[in-house]
Design a protein around this nucleic acid. Structure first.
Lengths: 243, 243
DNA sequence: CCGATGCCTTGATTTCGGTCAAAGCCCCCA
DNA sequence: TGGGGGCTTTGACCGAAATCAAGGCATCGG
């Protein structure tokens, strides 16, 4: 895989989705050099501001993307405006719903996001040619399904304070640069506002705020600037996450 | 696809997973006749009683199955016993988690279930040979992901009465034999006990019972024998499901 | 420097759903 | 026929989280 990327690089083609290989979840590593070159011609990089909508509900989607950096939130809404975040995509996740013209969900940049996008048709053609690409996609989709089910437990059966603890743990695992699983502490910037966290956990902003305050007063975490979090003891946070 | 199955049939091989084709979600239709014959040799039919555990949490899984009839519930539990149903598998869904030795979830027969099972190795070998099989699996997994996200909205943002209405609608769509989408009424047997419904919706049995009673007294549904449900007006049920 | 705006926090009160407790119903079986 | 067990319903009460309402605290632009 590494050699594939280097082949492309040495051929003078800009690296496509440089972070695809990280955590083995990107899709580009599945392509052979010829395909990569072909895809690179049709792909484009984008920088996106927080709050910008990437995929609209019931809108026709004509491109797929890899998330290169930042966090994208996937949301669904009820007709009266109640909203639920149904997934967060971190680099190097794939963005888009194959085999469906319409998306049933919204995707919106939660932070500054950079994307590598390609036309739907380009990916779909390659998927026909390259079983390995479809294989990657299947693996990522299965992982996302596991994650979704994990959150169903959180949404359905955990208390507010367990939800907030679980959320912080999940973010720490995905964002903290020093994240090795055995780490005793972690530090990171929250990619979501209190309103987003509430929409993710099925709570209100007030409840999220109160639970964060509680974790702060009990010295489990510290928060600077409303965003920068230090978890002093991941173990204590885990205890509160309901396991 | 139909011809594939007939080929096998006419060759004197017992039909494998006869309902695989229904709703285009089974996996066997992806195989060519030779593969089907090969798989038929290693596959076995099972009848399973309600309550029997099919896949244990963190247990090694060495077979996959297609659900031929009945309903299988997928559950996850917290360490203190709180439980959440994270999915229901109806015929002809595929059962099993490819590419992982251990399952993170439990699978248990909710009703009488009949399965067509095959060794993990057989399927995995065929997946390597047949991109079409992997393609089917990807499609089913994407559908399951869509469903899981739909339920995340229900779990996180709907009221108890909306949850129960949504549940009844979902069951009606999956079970009612007369189910065409435009139907104004439906009738079916609940495949789950009140306790299961509660675990599915993140509620308690008492709340589920009270909400069902309310729907009954308001003449939206009728219930005989605690299981046989008649929905007099699907439209009224939809109104109560939160949209 | 001031006010406006957008988040976030905190407090008071309400409410929905959970908990606890007691029947009811059904089915099976002796 | 009657008793027991499992599932469901119903009622009374309680409590966790929602709602309602201020107020704080940065950042931005005048």
């Amino acid at each position: 895989m590494m050699t594939v990327r280097q082949d492309v690089h040495s051929a003078g083609i800009p690296v496509l989705c440089q972070s695809c290989e990280a955590r083995h979840r990107g899709v580009c590593g599945a392509l052979d050099p010829d395909q990569l070159v072909g895809l690179a011609k049709t792909s484009s990089r984008h920088k996106i501001e927080p709050g910008v909508e990437l995929i609209g509900d019931a809108e026709t989607v004509d491109s797929y993307s890899n998330v290169l950096s930042g966090v994208v939130k996937l949301t669904k809404s009820l007709s009266d405006g109640r909203q639920q975040i149904v997934g967060l995509q971190f680099a190097p996740d794939f963005l888009g719903r194959p085999f469906k013209a319409e998306s049933a969900i919204n995707a919106e940049a939660a932070t500054n996001v950079s994307l590598c996008s390609f036309p739907k048709t380009a990916i779909e053609r390659m998927m026909k040619e390259s079983p390995e690409l479809e294989h990657r996609l299947l693996r990522q989709t299965l992982n996302e399904l596991d994650e979704a089910r994990e959150w169903m437990v959180t949404l359905g059966r955990k208390t507010a304070s367990e939800k907030v603890a679980s959320f912080l743990l999940m973010i720490a695992r995905n964002i903290d640069p020093t994240a090795d699983p055995a780490a005793r502490s972690a530090t990171f910037d929250l990619p979501l506002t209190r309103a987003d966290i509430a929409d993710f956990l099925g709570l209100t902003i007030e409840t999220v705020s109160r639970q964060l305050t509680r974790l702060r007063t009990e010295n489990v975490i510290r928060i600077d600037n409303n965003r920068h979090v230090t978890v002093d003891s991941l173990a204590r946070l885990e205890q509160r996450s309901g396991a």
